[in-house]
Design a protein around this nucleic acid. Sequence first.
DNA 1: TGTGTAAGCTAATAACATTAGCTTCGGCAT
DNA 2: ATGCCGAAGCTAATGTTATTAGCTTACACA
Lengths: 191, 191
Amino acid sequence: MARAGLTPRVVVDVALDLVDERGADALTLAAVAKRAGVATPSLYKHIGGLADLRRMVATRVVEGLAQELNAAVLGLSGRDAVRALLRAYRSHVRSRPHRVRFLETAPTPDDPEASRAYRVAVDVMFAALRTYDLVEGERVRTTRLLRSMVHGFVVLEVAGGFGLPEDVDATFEELLDDAEALLDRRAPSTA
Amino acid sequence: MARAGLTPRVVVDVALDLVDERGADALTLAAVAKRAGVATPSLYKHIGGLADLRRMVATRVVEGLAQELNAAVLGLSGRDAVRALLRAYRSHVRSRPHRVRFLETAPTPDDPEASRAYRVAVDVMFAALRTYDLVEGERVRTTRLLRSMVHGFVVLEVAGGFGLPEDVDATFEELLDDAEALLDRRAPSTA
DNA sequence: TGTGTAAGCTAATAACATTAGCTTCGGCAT
DNA sequence: ATGCCGAAGCTAATGTTATTAGCTTACACA
């Protein structure tokens, strides 16, 4: 019989497809195995188990977000960079709403892969503030506040927490303005 | 044999204890039944199943939050009310971190109980802005932004998304200042 | 005191994760 | 070419959980 040719990476690919198509709760080893064309126990040759697979999926989700954020700010600086970053964060989550579950728990420190991916994502945001003239300690706190705003917004949005969908775009535009004002308050000198 | 005297309310109480003590993933019917002193199938006399129990738990979690928010703003108005509200939101979630999972999905419209609880919670926030002189459409959007900020912050905080814990308090104080500035931009006339 | 209903029970089924141990494909050295 | 051996796959078995069906009995109330 022809082998399926699985690798950890492929297993995670299949898992992500499953999550995107049928939601985070549909991520079971049985479903992944079926879709990959192998028996369930065969997956254990490539992953440590369901918890391990979830961890790897979360890592890939964060990596994907980081990449998209990074691409969004390329060549931009100042206000433009921040606005592009926040827009990219929202649009990425909206395009794959089921993945948001995997953005809701930070990696444990003993997971270097996941920690690295997470750090990269935060660093992109951090770097987008480089052109703002912030005092040292303010950079970290300001990054946290921007993350809180945009993360809270998209989490509530994809959860349907805003009621009627109309006008949510306008609310997000206001969020961008508020983010900018927040930065201006801290670095009024920046162009 | 003496009956256990269960009711839907008691089952949810037990479920909440379980969540608080052992985390949201530990919420299984088997565990609830054991703790309640009955056999697992007996729970079906009071709840519709696991999904139903989760729904009821989520409702109670939102009710609890709404109550605490409401208590926090009693007798306050303007800036004081908003600051107290946001502080209460954070402290409530921090005191029962495992419950946050149940704040991350909005109720479906066909669930009147849950929808009502959710609406009450949002209304408390909405009402806290009453003393601000906002134009009509701005009230809804402003409420959303405050919710996004504080919800995003506490979600990231309890998930451990902020790295080192020190200084998180200071970041939250900045969030309060930013929320105030955000309101001042929209209603500069308010005292 | 009798009776009906709701609260409890046991038994059975199905989905899933996980472990153990077997089989075989296919790359690689001879 | 051929034979070896490790990795990739398999089946079988176990344990946990949710759920349904159908039985029994406590207890409120007539």
